[in-house]
């Protein structure tokens, strides 16, 4: 398979009054043509920052990509000037956002908002762009697109707005679509519809998807591969099956255990004790060590290297070292995998 997008050892920092916040600390992953990769992790793990770094949408004044490469078809996006980025954004890589209630301009008709990108990237005339916009609305399942194209965002419901946001993102047939928690702000029935729609559209258009979420249910639904992020680093990557049925990192175990299960005997919800690391002063060793029930001395002082479990499965944990004691994943994590 061809690597469409590859991140190599990307570091992103924010400069605040309190000091430098190292939000992303050496993230590497790749995305193949037409596949969907999920990035999971809790709030503050760096998943959104990573995706915004790819789009170079982080605020210029307060943040910077300190190291690493973001290779898209051979071009390093991390060093591309703004003008060059404008040709990538929306055309090659586009993005959909979490909250459809606020991510559309309230004073512009949705037709204009869809056509804006088309006219810029594909030099379409007004009527061509309009026709394309109507087709896009039809594609994302909005009834009466000819009429609705002239309406404003406040005339749409939340789910419908997210469809519009998706239509905007797909307007120029991008090669990569980054979906930053696309269903978080929607209610559950609508969530399922939007996920179905995204899966459908991926089949039709062949766009590769990076799905950012903290919802493992969404992952199982849509993704082929998963990267688990914690404390600004990727702690485990693998195929969906590998992550769900054969997780290796204790943080992944924790994530899987904390998924509510319908068939569980106890009504208690499991949580991972403790809080995520302070990225203003990130720990020297493994970021999860402070919350890990299996932490060893080495975990506190040395960052674990990424260890290959299989050709597609890697985890960064000292437990995978041959000198480490054998630890089995907890019962709850295994049940979580048996979906």
């Amino acid at each position: 398979m061809e690597k469409l997008l590859e991140l190599k050892n990307v570091h992103v920092s924010f400069h605040t009054y309190g000091g430098e916040v190292k939000a992303v600390r050496g993230v590497s992953f790749h995305l193949e043509k037409g596949e969907s990769l999920a990035i999971v992790g809790e709030s503050g793990s760096g998943k959104s920052v990573t995706s915004k770094a790819v789009m170079r949408l982080l605020p210029n004044k307060t943040s910077e990509i300190k190291e690493g490469q973001i290779l898209f078809e051979g071009k390093d996006l991390a060093r591309l000037p703004e003008k060059g980025m404008e040709k990538i954004r929306g055309k090659e890589i586009s993005m959909i956002f979490q909250d459809p209630m606020t991510s559309l301009n309230p004073t512009m008709t949705i037709g204009k908002q869809i056509m804006e990108g088309l006219r810029k990237h594909q030099n379409m005339s007004k009527s061509e762009a309009q026709e394309r916009a109507i087709n896009l609305l039809k594609l994302v399942g909005i009834p009466n697109p000819e009429i609705r194209i002239k309406e404003y965002p406040h005339q749409f419901s939340g789910g419908m707005r997210q469809r519009v946001v998706i239509a905007i993102a797909l307007a120029c047939n991008p090669k990569v679509l980054i979906a930053d928690e696309p269903t978080t702000a929607l209610d559950v029935t609508i969530q399922a519809q939007i996920l179905d729609l995204m899966r459908d559209l991926q089949k039709k258009t062949g766009t590769a998807i990076i799905l950012i979420t903290h919802d493992l249910g969404v992952v199982a639904n849509l993704a082929q591969r998963v990267a688990v992020m914690y404390g600004g680093t990727i702690v485990e990557t693998g195929t969906v099956d590998e992550i769900f049925y054969n997780p290796k990192h204790p943080y992944t175990w924790g994530l899987l255990s904390s998924m509510p299960k319908l068939n569980a005997e106890s009504k208690e919800l499991l949580a991972i004790p403790g809080t995520p690391p302070d990225l203003l002063n990130p720990p020297k060793g493994c970021p999860f060590a402070a919350r890990c029930p299996h932490a060893m001395q080495v975990c506190l002082n040395h960052m674990p290297e990424s260890t290959k479990v299989s050709s597609t499965h890697q985890a960064a944990c000292w437990l995978l070292d041959e000198r480490a004691p054998k630890v089995e994943p907890p019962e709850a994590a295994l049940v979580g995998g048996a979906r």
């Binding site: 040709k87 954004r89 993005m95 956002f97 606020t102 905007i168």
Partner: peptide
Amino acid sequence: GQDYMITARAKGISK
């Protein structure tokens, strides 16, 4: 600071 400003930038529209 509104979200739709980021949406607009994500479309590749100039600043």
